[in-house]
Design a protein around this nucleic acid. Structure first.
Lengths: 193, 193
DNA sequence: TCATAAATGTGACATAGATCAATGCAATTT
DNA sequence: AAATTGCATTGATCTATGTCACATTTATGA
């Protein structure tokens, strides 16, 4: 049950068996059914969760009724609204299971113990966040200057797996375009072959 | 000369005087004149720099000739292309001084020594990167769902200081809109008063 | 296995913002 | 002080993408 997490850690830092055994004690397993919410707008994000199985989306709802998607998270990724988690402020995001999910959750107090007792976790999380920042910066630059088609093509080769598991209208929300536009782009691309 | 840096560190973590004295030895002061480049597309980002004085922009140039701006960095902020810095891959970004600047630079080997000798720096950088990620995520969501006017209004109350120091066409590039559109938005806002 | 809901596709039309082109004003440079 | 360059403004178009409305296909759960 903890293999994926162990793998994620070992890929980035060095950790002893005793340390990992202690680490395990801080996590709480959690199952979610498809369409269940891990977090709803207005609630405080009490946990950071590691995805063992399944797929989730983090999104907001704006006045116009759009639901722009901040991220999809599948096996091996962490998910939380870090701002809310760190500050205890109510979240602006919703996190919803797109499939039945199995998570490992850690509360903020436990997370702080983890960082304090096993300092190499500072490094682990720094690396994760760093990579997330790099990816988010790229997406931002793309959002500012690419056409809808360019965004879609980039997504295809960055996350081919995602397309199979996520409905198209959510892909559109992730790209910041409408489902109609995405549908038309796909038609064109298919025609060009 | 190191007061601002010390302040930035102490604001986030606890550090002893000896530790900071050691830290100082790893930095190289650097001055840049307005319009000079700290980094050019295609080069490897050899330093991470702390801004003591001045203002810089990080941007790319795309095929259409747009120059979307990833960030402005002024006093008290760090600047680098972290991807290039960490991987030694050529950078996709340009970093240009918008004013005469004074920086404190650290190379990757020195940065690694810093993290190793004074582990609290793992935490310091984790916190900085975390805050940057939160801000970048918000900008991304805005870029996907807000109108040009909304983006501009948000910028005004997030970074009022920036507007005075940066030419308008760069504000437009930061927002991902054209200078003409920004000019029109400002006109409308002024009319509505 | 049927019935309802969710997801996708497609046409007609609307629009925010881009593009192009010209003008007037600072602000540097010589 | 003149000359060059950079910056902001404004008008006239154009266009990629959004919006709305409806049809079709695919899931899903009772």
């Amino acid at each position: 049950m903890f293999e994926l997490l162990l793998h994620s850690i070992k890929e980035r830092v060095t950790i002893s068996e005793e340390e990992f055994n202690f680490c395990k004690t801080l996590f709480i397993p959690k199952k979610l059914r498809k369409r269940q919410f891990l977090l709803q707008e207005g609630d405080v994000c009490k946990y950071t969760s590691f995805v063992e199985k399944g797929m989730l989306r983090t999104y907001t709802v704006d006045e116009k009724g759009n639901e722009p998607i901040l991220q999809f998270s599948s096996e091996g990724w962490w998910i939380a609204d870090i701002y809310s988690f760190l500050t205890d402020e109510p979240s602006l995001y919703n996190i919803e299971a797109l499939e039945d999910c199995e998570l490992l959750q850690i509360t903020k107090p436990s997370w702080e113990i983890l960082l304090q007792k096993i300092p190499v976790f500072e490094r682990y999380f720094r690396i994760l966040i760093q990579n997330n920042l790099i990816a988010t910066q790229r997406r931002l630059m793309g959002a500012m200057s690419e056409t809808a088609e360019e965004k879609y093509l980039k997504l295809i080769d960055n996350f081919p797996g995602c397309l199979q598991r996520v409905p198209q209208h959510m892909i559109a929300s992730y790209l910041g375009i409408t489902r109609e536009t995405l549908s038309r782009i796909r038609k064109q691309l298919a025609a060009r072959k």
